[in-house]
């Protein structure tokens, strides 16, 4: 059986974390491909219910960065 690979959802602030993720790309840093970013205008937008909802839908991990 293949090793368990968690699927991670990331809420990224447009002004810092999302920009950071872009910069990681520019610098060609390599990281696992199991993360999906959702851009928000501020990490303050992330209602705790969004996180709960994500887990309910089957995401294994949620990252809020901002």
């Amino acid at each position: 059986m293949a090793e368990f690979e968690p699927r991670i959802l990331a809420f990224l602030c447009n002004w810092c974390a999302y920009a950071g993720a872009d910069l990681a790309g520019v610098s060609r840093m390599q990281y696992p491909s199991n993360i999906r970013a959702v851009r928000v205008m501020c990490s303050g937008r992330v209602d705790p219910s969004f996180i709960v909802r994500a887990f309910k839908q089957g995401w294994d991990g949620v990252l809020v960065a901002g």
Binding site: L23, A24, G25, V26, R28, Q30, S33, A37
Partner: peptide, 16 residues
């Protein structure tokens, strides 16, 4: 964002 946050950071895992 399929470049900065995808092909550039997973350049060695083409299928993924």
């Amino acid at each position: 964002n399929i470049r900065n946050q995808c092909t550039w950071v997973h350049s060695k895992e083409k299928e993924k």
